[in-house]
């Protein structure tokens, strides 16, 4: 039986209008055979968590270039977990200084993809991680 398609929610938290990266990544994931839902702009953490629940996604990709990541990303993860979405892989991309990355990882962001990351890197990362998560859920 074919492996179930990976479902990804790409979201833009906060007031940041820079959506080039989000759209490019959304398209690359789609071309790689994933099902991609793009929320559009100006999403609050609540809206993103709700969309993740409704769409039953495996992955949430948060794109943020405004500098508000420390306020918005940990909160989004927390809301996802509160909704029982413990298995959802959360990754981020954008202008995020190196020194913030460990703090974001501690807050539950699995990986941060900075400027210059190839879309192939992101595709492979998501494929591997989701496969891992699916395996461990099956075995659980």
């Amino acid at each position: 039986m074919a492996e179930e398609k990976i479902r990804v929610l790409i979201a833009k938290p906060g007031l940041d209008g820079h959506d080039r990266g989000a759209k490019v990544v959304a398209r690359a994931l789609r071309d790689a055979g994933m099902e991609v839902i793009y929320t559009g702009l100006r999403q609050t953490p609540e809206m993103i968590a709700e969309a993740a629940l409704q769409e039953d996604v495996d992955v949430v990709g948060l794109s943020i270039l405004s500098g508000a990541h420390m306020a918005l990303l940990p909160k989004t993860v927390q809301l996802l977990r509160e909704k029982g979405l413990d298995h959802v892989l959360v990754v981020a991309g954008g202008i995020i200084p190196d020194e913030d990355v460990p703090k974001l990882k501690e807050a539950g962001i699995a990986e941060v993809f900075g400027p210059g990351t190839s879309t192939q890197t992101i595709v492979e990362y998501i494929r591997n991680k989701v496969a891992e998560i699916r395996r461990s859920r099956k075995n659980a």
Partner: peptide, 18 residues
């Protein structure tokens, strides 16, 4: 900053973190 660009005062809930 982005709240100003969207016409929100700094203490508006929409301006959180920005």
């Amino acid at each position: 900053d982005t709240p100003t660009l969207y016409g929100y005062d700094t203490d508006d809930p929409m301006a959180e973190g920005e």
